[in-house]
């Protein structure tokens, strides 16, 4: 069983992967229900941020409570060290990979905004204003990067399990 052979860092990485998928779905679902743009309906976007924040807090509380109960049940909670040098090394390698992806996402966002401003009949998202694209793009990019970071960690843990 994966959970039994995993340590605290890997278990939290699994929670983070699930968290990012859930929040990305929640946020994308909320985006489809928005009316207007940030300049005309800023209150709706701020409301979506608030709902996303609330959903995040509820998810994290439930997930970590469940993890604490499972660790107590399996006897893992008497580990002296929750994070050791191997966990730090794996996280450092995963962070480097996530950093490259974050840089790429940010560059792509700005390239898109630049192209939208200078190219007539630019085909991608022509009806989305730059500020809206940047707001939602940054939100979804940060979720993607967090997903890549944690999935990369899990891959390294499973590779060496």
């Amino acid at each position: 069983m994966i959970f039994k052979d995993s340590n605290f860092s890997e278990q939290t990485a699994w929670i983070s992967v699930t968290f990012t998928v859930f929040i990305a779905w929640f946020y994308a679902n909320g985006m489809t229900q928005l009316e207007g743009t940030f300049s005309t309906h800023a209150d709706q976007i701020v409301g979506l941020w608030g709902q996303t924040m609330l959903a995040s807090i509820i998810f994290v509380v439930i997930a970590f409570t469940a993890l604490a109960v499972i660790r107590k049940f399996t006897g893992d909670d008497d580990d002296i060290s929750l994070v050791d040098e191997r966990d730090e090394l794996i996280e450092a390698r995963a962070t480097r990979w996530a950093y490259y992806n974050l840089s790429t996402c940010i560059i792509l966002l700005f390239v898109h905004i630049f192209c939208q401003g200078v190219i007539t009949n630019y085909p991608f998202f022509p009806n989305v204003p730059p500020i809206d694209f940047l707001i939602h793009g940054l939100m979804l990019s940060s979720l993607l990067v967090e997903f890549i970071l944690r999935a990369s960690q899990i891959y390294r843990y499973r590779k060496a399990a």
Partner: peptide, 16 residues
């Protein structure tokens, strides 16, 4: 693992 202050999974990974 307790004596070293690392996790049991790290000991398993070293042994393997």
């Amino acid at each position: 693992a307790k004596a070293l202050g690392v996790t049991r999974q790290t000991i398993a990974a070293i042994e393997a």
